[in-house]
Design a protein around this nucleic acid. Structure first.
Lengths: 225, 225
DNA sequence: CTTGAATTATGAGCATGCTCAACTTTTCCG
DNA sequence: CGGAAAAGTTGAGCATGCTCATAATTCAAG
């Protein structure tokens, strides 16, 4: 009986012996397949209603295999943000014109781009985003990666602030400034999630006003207190 | 066989026939028992690791009964915040001296009290708090209650701001002002959750500085822009 | 007190995220 | 090639949050 359990599965879907292209290659492909299936399902059903069982099925692997590639379902979801953060940084580096624009414009462009990217996934962003707020718990293996991701983002922002500082646009704000921008972004996304207006226009308006307000405040030297 | 399933459970723990004090009374008592057991377990193990099975057992009821009283486990957790919010409001109404203090001091006292109250439950507050950020989903019956709770809090804050406004302490800030304080509180709790310093002193310092900064800002009339 | 309807309690059972021991495939080395 | 160690895969199975058909309890009317 127990010998019957491990029968080969539908061979049409995935060749059992994929000796062809080295191990590394296959692992990469499998990971890609998982990510693709996951994003599809997240988009279709949202984070909660996309089951790991269905993701695995769509990626043509066993459910256990999924957890060889991603420690948890959340980890899988975080991957999405990681890719986006990296993309965002690359994008900004390429936008030469933006590099010289005023700080408020830069931040607007950055946050706007993120909101745009996030838009089709609104359903599940709420869940992931809220979860990403949870503090590091030594029990959760996820927390470390999440922390890493946040750090990467913070360093990126700090760099932008430092540049504006060098241009004499703002006084020195240091790490705290980056943290502040992070909190601000938090607030914006919260607003965005609740925003029912067409095209999320209210959020964009808020973003614009808040940023120019902040910029003016910094210019006025209100920061030194 | 199926007739054997529904046997009376250990009669020592709970009298099977509690005809005594009317139905209402019993419901109240059961609810109390559930809440007590739940808070105990949340405190002991945090939200995730406190199972509904154990809560039920400790409250001496079947697991299904728990869900007659609370729609979801989250709902159960929210109850805790509801009680706290109500307590907070009552407390503030009683503190005659605070009513006349400057706005920054009032907000400091309010937030400080909340942090203090929350302290023993830090483990599970993160989870509940983060979850409370999730936008309303028509599927979740919880969302409505959650919204209600948030509204109660916002109205409370708005009232305080209105009073400060009447004293001529700040310009009119309206609903947006209350929302802003709410977002600020969000940031503070996030910081608090991550704060490893002794007695969360860093958070308290941040709270103090940020509030007096905000107060000064409003006084300077920077708000009109 | 009886009766039957309304209310409340019960726990087997379901779907889900995740684990793990058993199994397969690939790689390595003689 | 041979064969064994390493790396990867698998799906049965576990714990958990929650549901639902069924049973127990309560209460008002007769």
């Amino acid at each position: 009986m127990s010998t019957l359990i491990y029968m080969k599965k539908d061979a049409a879907k995935r060749t059992p012996k994929m000796k062809a292209g080295g191990r590394e290659r296959n692992k990469e492909r499998t990971k890609e397949r998982i990510l693709k299936a996951a994003l599809q399902l997240f988009r279709e059903r949202g984070l909660e209603r996309a089951t790991t069982r269905e993701i695995s099925k769509r990626a043509c692997i066993a459910e256990g295999t999924l957890f060889n590639y991603f420690k948890t379902k959340e980890d899988l979801a975080l991957y999405f943000f990681q890719k986006e953060t990296e993309g965002l940084i690359r994008w900004f580096r390429a936008e030469k014109r933006l590099q010289k624009a005023p700080l408020a414009e830069q931040l607007f462009a950055i946050i706007h781009r993120q909101l745009e990217y996030i838009e089709p996934y609104e359903d599940f962003i709420g869940a992931v985003f809220a979860r990403s707020l949870q503090p590091a718990s030594s029990l959760s293996p996820l927390s470390f990666d999440s922390q890493e991701l946040r750090l990467k983002y913070l360093r990126f922002i700090r760099e932008i602030l430092a540049a504006a500082e060098e241009r004499g646009e703002i006084p020195p704000v240091g790490n705290l400034g980056a943290y502040g921008v992070g909190l601000f972004y938090l607030g914006i996304v919260t607003h965005w999630l609740h925003d029912g207006s067409r095209g999320k226009q209210r959020t964009l308006a808020l973003l614009d006003r808040a940023l120019s307000f902040g910029a003016r405040m910094l210019q006025k030297g209100t920061w030194e207190w």
